[in-house]
Nucleic acid binder design. Structure first.
Lengths: 346, 346
DNA sequence: GACACCGTATAGAGCGCTCTCCCTCCTCCC
DNA sequence: GGGAGGAGGGAGAGCGCTCTATACGGTGTC
């Protein structure tokens, strides 16, 4: 671009009014004569004016930008940020989070800044970014429990909303799912189908959501006459699902119903069962969790417990927006209900 | 945050020097006495100073931010941005792009702003965003040919780097893969395995990359004694891969080797073949394209043509950086070579 | 006819930073 | 000893915007 970008001053001169008046028109403030408004509008078009955001942010103290942080809990740079990012997006879950956040932000002409925080340095980077005023607040999705980032954010009084209740407790708003109820839904379905040998592939037990899903599942199974349910712990990945199911099958070759704590692992469970000659759902019923794209692309399509991730992410953005605008000062929480989606595997 | 954030002025007062000196220290400019430097450094720590980016951007005319735009080619708001975002991330491809970009940006303390441009309004939004100086340039990944965004960006002289050569031609830098050569690699492998009835599931033929992959494949097949190769067009999705293979099988039940234009479709091909009682690779060899996470999680693991997406994305970021800093003024292109990754399906 | 009042536009003071002068002090060399 | 030269630090002018205080005209009221 050879010539300088036009400024308010240029538009004002072109329209024959003062800077302040142009500013009012641009910001849609009332008390402007319609004729002048029109005149200014045309001057803006003629000059091709676009307000300089840095100048505006400098005085309003608002970046009109939020950070979307995917946070691990690494103590050091064990893994490159690139590898972390790749791993994160391997799960369709994050794509859904992005979609939900964008769904809320878009109508407001806002766009998220994507950040990955895996090492202490990364976390410092996030803090600095916000303290510099480059973003007005953060949406944090932690991949691990005991993520130190929320605590840091809270201590710095930076507007933040989390996905999932933080452990340990931190006075920040969050959005969550009733995971326990999700586990119950899965158990009930299996019981209704007449399963007599249920088992479950749990998520990492260090993750509260995994524990809750497991607790809900066990709970309902116990009431249904199955006080003991074999459990194999997985890591929310396809490979870990296969491995967990392998162990389960070795000790309990007669299982006829499996609840996997996410769809990725459920897919692994199905794959292994088929390899071992078990038919799904005829020999073994399988229920996943999340209702991600995988559930549909699986063969056969997965019966699963739906987690409305997009809605939850949009709600996070809404809460953060309120915090930023000062419309909400106290931390709050919004808990969504899971829903059983019946397809073919159970 | 009750009290105002400390400014340069505060730090200067605390350290007993002028604003200019603090600025020099913060920006690592030479000509500062080490003793004073130390003194300022301590004052910064004591006050907890973080430079205000808006103020800095206002004078440097740099946002130190780049936009990562995923662009469709929609003529209207046929699809919500949320749905578009979700669809985009269903393909692991974009996760890899993000990973590559972040890999380059991170060491520079930069973070991408994620934007989706599917409707004309969205495109206008992208233009405005850049013209307002909120980002210094754009990295554009188009999901469709004839995307109007590159043309708009070029006309506005906004620093831009594209993923894949634009059609029609636009004077912008881009990064691409030698797709034709990728098709050749797949054909050669199939020939070497002794395939006698090859077929291919192509990508959308409106996409140049699909055409190139197909052309390369046909080319080598023709030289290998197969002047005619059955083609079924797919849409780069799992479902379309299944559908395409279904058609192929109906007309050519004796195929013994299939090249699918991406891994997602190759996965569909494998699924369908298995359902129809064909063993992979014993009865039919299958080769995918991309080497995305799917290739590994597929059962059996997919032999595929690797596209170094992360490296390509990092290169895009590097080129954009050069354009922004004015170190490169002419549009350029960097073409990467594909590589055959042999696993179990061929 | 004087005054108050409301709606509308302007002037001007910053927001917090960078960066260009310019001043000062010290060293070095003839 | 004097002047050139260089290093280190300060003063101050903006960057482009918002927003408060203020001016100004026109209407309504007594």
């Amino acid at each position: 671009m050879s010539r300088q970008a036009p400024t308010l001053e240029d538009v004002a001169r072109e329209a024959g009014v003062s800077r302040a008046t142009v500013s009012r028109v641009v910001n849609g403030v009332r008390n402007v004569d319609p004729a002048i408004q029109e005149q200014v509008q045309r001057a803006i078009e003629r000059t091709g004016y676009a307000p300089n955001r840095a100048a505006r942010s400098l005085v309003t103290r608002r970046a009109e930008t939020i950070a979307l942080v995917v946070s691990g809990a690494g103590g050091g740079p064990e893994e490159s940020q690139e590898a972390f990012a790749a791993r994160v997006f391997a799960d369709p879950f994050f794509g859904r989070v992005v979609a939900g956040v964008v769904g809320f932000l878009r109508p407001r002409s806002m766009h998220p800044v994507l950040m990955f925080a895996e090492s202490p340095d990364d976390r410092h980077e996030v803090l600095t970014y916000l303290r510099q005023g480059r973003a007005d607040g953060a949406l944090v999705v932690s991949t691990h429990p005991d993520d130190p980032l929320p605590t840091l954010l809270a201590a710095a009084h930076l507007p933040t909303v989390l996905f999932a209740r933080p452990t340990p407790a931190v006075p920040l708003s969050y959005v969550d799912l009733d995971h326990r109820d999700g586990g119950r839904l899965a158990a009930r379905r299996l019981l209704e189908r007449g399963c007599r040998r249920p088992a479950t592939v749990a998520g990492p037990l260090a993750v509260p959501a995994s524990q809750e899903r497991l607790a809900g599942f066990r709970d309902t199974m116990a009431r249904g006459g199955h006080p003991y349910v074999p459990v194999a712990e997985g890591g929310f990945t396809l490979a870990s699902g296969i491995a967990a199911m392998t162990r389960l099958l070795a000790e309990h070759p007669d299982v006829d119903g499996v609840f996997a704590a996410n769809d990725l692992m459920a897919q692994g469970v199905c794959q292994l069962l088929r390899e071992r000659g078990r038919r799904v759902p005829d020999d073994v019923a399988v229920i996943g969790f999340d209702d991600s794209g995988i559930a549909l692309s699986c063969r056969p399509p997965l019966t699963t417990v739906r987690q409305p991730v997009e809605q939850m992410a949009a709600e996070m953005a809404r809460l953060l927006d309120q915090h930023i605008r000062g419309e909400r000062t106290e931390a709050t929480s919004v808990v969504f209900d899971p829903e059983l989606v019946i397809r073919e595997t159970a």
